[in-house]
Nucleic acid binder design. Structure first.
Lengths: 184, 184, 184, 184
DNA sequence: TATGAATGAGGATTCATTCAT
DNA sequence: TATGAATGAATCCTCATTCAT
């Protein structure tokens, strides 16, 4: 007798939904992110969505949480390889160049998140932790105000590039970081 | 049968819709901006929306265009009062502090626009002109690379503040601008 | 918030919608067939329409498919009772007289279908199968060309009567069939 | 002094609208024929539509009237060249082949008209005159019943071809006409 | 005479969510 | 535990028509 339709054999169902949600946000924005679309992308029945998540807000929150965690981990990994402030600058520029700007997806998701968080305070816990982590990472090489300004510069350079469209040379990114970090 | 009573000749009707749209974007985001809501806010019948605008995209485009024009005009006006690079720094900081960050609305609209433009190239004409104007304004006091970095810094400081929530002291803004502009 | 009370498990719901759609097509034409109207006639909430059908096109396709199947079945049933070519002629004339022309509804639906299929090739699968079935049914009594001409004659007599309005005598129908089928 | 904006210099405005309407019917069907679309195709302001025509029904009626008149004139012209019943058969077959079936447009418009007239008796005046004219044309060569059957056969062969899609050989058309007309 | 402005009704469709199973 | 069925609200948009000019 063959095994009758196994029922619970999809343990990372929830996981897959979150990943699908991140992808959908990248592709269609938060506004275009619906239960239906995410369910389809995750190959999961529509009914699952409200079973695993307490509505749309919960889904978005968890998706952005994972996205932020990943961004922080990646940034920390890069920072760990820096031995001094000079190298930290290089690492930060590289992070912008190769992480944030590597794919339009990363960029779009960040932007979507900022926009959502700016409007809805219930997403601020994520942004707070995100910013704190990034700044904490940089704090080993720079003083408090510099760290804040660097964080802002990172956002600015990233955003700026997002709207440019065309690929530009990476020099200004590096220069911008150094001006803030080292007074040039 | 329909069109019972055209109310005829309300000359700045279209204008009012655009303003209402900007307000709605500020309050509910692009995602929450629907014909219905804008029409209600503008005290205009729903049917007017597609009469005056060639669909949602057209409406958003015109709304953001006006918003950008206004931002540019304000920035230019401030810049005109600066007599040298030092004063220009002050003016730029003041612009961030008092224009972009003054009301959460300004901030939110900017963010909504960035997000939209990042995803949809058909809004890039606005962002291109916007960036070009701001940079042109600053070009009288700073060299080309500095202008680009300043623009990025402005965006970064603005965006950064958006997620902070609580009002912080304006000192870092001023410092950030000067580090970029004058090498501190 | 929506979906206050799903009425759950109404098994021939979809069926009822298709039947309602056929009726609406008869009464108001394809042009007058809207989700709203069909839903109302089927006593089904509007939201059901796009739940059960993949849009208007799908609904129409399924409705016409059922209509065609029914017409074919009826024609076949009649043909089965014919023992030779002579009786086949009688049967064909009776089919026109009593099936196609019996109610203005049958007629109108056919006409609506022809018009739709002539314009939109995605309905040709139905007309192809329909024509093939009818011709196959007649092929047991008549040669290939005769079958084709008979099919055309059937359409012509039917259509012709549609525009007449007043009921006319059935003699010409019988004569027309025999002239084609038997060379008179 | 140059002539000031001449006001009434578009005498065939109405004419152009009717022609545009026929084209639109061919392209999009009666269902897709709207004031807006016709006005655009005729390069005429939307307001003209209800100025020159007493609503949609009037426009359609006049458009189909012109279309029918043209079809009748063309058929009559062909028939005039026939000297006897044999030649009349050839002429009829040629009419089907080269007039009705030449362009899918002709076909579609006819079908649209039949469908409309079948549903709406207020278009029957056109179909009555159309049918009467065609039959009158043929009456010089054939007896009354034959004429009726020929008319039906013409419709049938035309319609039949409409749904076929692929171009077929003209032989069956000729044969069909002769079987009806001459008992083969 | 001719038309642009204006509008309410209705078009298809998408959606988050509920509930019975 | 998990899900398919079901639905009402809301989405954008098209339209025929009216009316002031």
């Amino acid at each position: 007798m063959p095994a009758t339709q196994p029922r619970h054999v999809d343990p990372e169902r929830k996981d897959r939904i979150i990943e699908a949600c991140i992808t959908v946000i990248a592709e269609r924005g938060v506004a275009g992110t619906s239960h239906r679309v995410v369910a389809a992308k995750a190959h999961v029945p529509l009914g699952s969505m409200t079973y695993y998540f307490d509505g749309m807000h919960d889904l978005l929150h968890q998706a952005f949480e994972r996205f932020a965690d990943r961004a922080v981990a990646r940034f920390d990994a890069r920072m760990e390889s820096a031995a001094n402030a000079d190298e930290a600058c290089e690492v930060i520029a590289a992070s912008i160049e190769h992480d944030s700007l590597a794919s339009p997806n990363e960029l779009n998701i960040s932007l979507e998140f900022y926009t959502l968080a700016a409007r809805d305070p219930s997403f601020r816990d994520i942004s707070d932790r995100w910013m704190a982590s990034i700044q904490h990472s940089m704090a080993q090489y720079f003083d408090a105000e510099t760290v804040i300004l660097l964080d802002a510069m990172i956002e600015g350079l990233t955003l700026h590039r997002a709207l440019g469209g065309e690929p530009k040379d990476p020099q200004p990114i590096f220069d911008g970081v150094r001006r803030i970090a080292l007074g040039k």
